[in-house]
Simulated scan of single mutants.
Amino acid sequence: MAKERFERHKQPWKSEEAGQLRLLAGKGKGLREIAKAIGRSEESTKDFAKKNKIEILKKR
């Protein structure tokens, strides 16, 4: 399965994206699902969540 390519690189996070991240993380969604919904890479989403102390549950 080929990796999805992201056209945006190192773009600042918008308040709407941060709010959506908090909402989805609060609902117990996984990293991959949250990143896809926001349109960000998993790495970017994970880094932003860590910096802002937002806990994302690990899906097994």
Rank of each mutant, 00 (worst) to 15 (best):
A37D: 01
K10P: 06
E7W: 04
F48P: 00
R32F: 13
M1P: 09
K50E: 09
E33N: 08
S15I: 10
G26W: 02
A18R: 00
K59L: 06
R40M: 00
K29P: 01
G26K: 02
E4G: 08
A49E: 03
P12L: 12
G30P: 05
R5V: 14
E43A: 15
I56P: 05
E7G: 06
R5N: 13
S41V: 05
P12K: 05
S15D: 13
M1V: 14
L24Y: 03
K50W: 04
R5F: 10
E16W: 12
R5I: 15
A37Q: 06
Q11A: 09
F6Y: 13
L21F: 04
L21G: 02
D47H: 12
I38P: 02
F48E: 05
N52Q: 11
E55T: 10
I56N: 04
A49H: 03
E55N: 08
A49N: 03
R22S: 13
W13F: 07
K59A: 07
A25W: 05
R60V: 10
K51L: 15
W13R: 03
G28R: 05
K53N: 12
R32I: 14
E17W: 05
E7H: 07
G28D: 00
Q11M: 09
E55Y: 14
E55F: 14
G39Y: 01
E33V: 00
E17F: 01
E16K: 09
W13N: 01
K3E: 11
M1I: 12
G19Q: 04
R8G: 12
S15H: 11
R60A: 10
R8E: 15
G19I: 00
M1F: 10
E42G: 08
L57Q: 15
S44P: 11
K53V: 01
K29V: 14
R40C: 00
K27D: 03
G26T: 00
E16N: 11
K3W: 08
G30W: 08
I54Y: 03
I38L: 13
Q20T: 15
K3N: 14
K53E: 10
M1K: 09
K29T: 03
K29S: 09
E42R: 11
A49K: 04
L24G: 06
P12F: 10
A49Y: 00
I54T: 05
W13T: 05
E4F: 06
N52S: 07
E43P: 08
G30H: 10
E43L: 13
E17Q: 07
G19L: 03
E43N: 14
K59N: 09
P12C: 09
Q20H: 14
E55D: 08
K59H: 06
G28L: 02
R32A: 15
R32C: 13
E7I: 00
A35F: 04
L24K: 02
R40H: 04
A18G: 09
A25P: 10
L31C: 00
G28E: 01
K10S: 12
R5P: 11
N52V: 02
F48V: 03
E17V: 05
K50M: 08
K53L: 08
A18F: 10
E42I: 04
